[in-house]
Amino acid sequence: MFVAVSFASVFNDLMNGFGYTLIIFFITLILSVPLGLIIMFGAVTKFKPLKWLTKGFVWIIRGTPLMLQIIIVFYIPGLLFNAPFKSRLLAVLIAFVINYACYFSEIYRGGLESIPKGQYEAGYVLGMKKSQVFFHIVLMQIIKRILPPMGNEVTTLVKDTSLARVIMIVELIQAAQFQTARHGIIWPLFFTGIFYLIFIGLLTLLFGYIERKLDYYKI
């Protein structure tokens, strides 16, 4: 009797934690994928000041721990502008989106730079505009190239969501650890692992599926 009630309430708490994990994951993904594209354009522009500014920014974000960035984003408005965040989740999301956009921008840039010059030139001599060359010729090749590294990065994002606990967001692991501490039981922590394994397993299948879909041609 006692055990059954405990399982239901623990599971409920874990699901709440998993909810935060999902929110952080999906919102970060949805926003950082396009933001990364914008940052990439900054990093490859011919306008030197913007280029170096962007590159410097990306270097800082990639060169420091995401955990530190979360804490800094969380404290900046309160300590510098006397307007603390009303929502901890918002602070986490801002830090995550910026961080992942920078990583994605580097992946995009690698993809862009891997496209041979001849592809552009072939388009130009056929009277295409720059935008046409990008959307009709280059884009699909870039997508194919970046799919594997994007898959890795997205998998990492799933696990990184646990960093949100650093500003007391009760995501999956934090939720499990509370249960462990409160009831002296170990299984919530293992249970957490299963959540991650299933989630990442599904993502791996999804990326594998897309890669197979694009297998009809070779670059």
């Binding site: 001849g118 072939a122 001599v125 090749q141 041609y217």
Partner: peptide, 12 residues
């Protein structure tokens, strides 16, 4: 028109 040494066809 231009025909390149290494073809430059669009692979996709």
């Amino acid at each position: 028109g231009m025909v390149f040494q290494n073809f430059n066809l669009f692979p996709q």
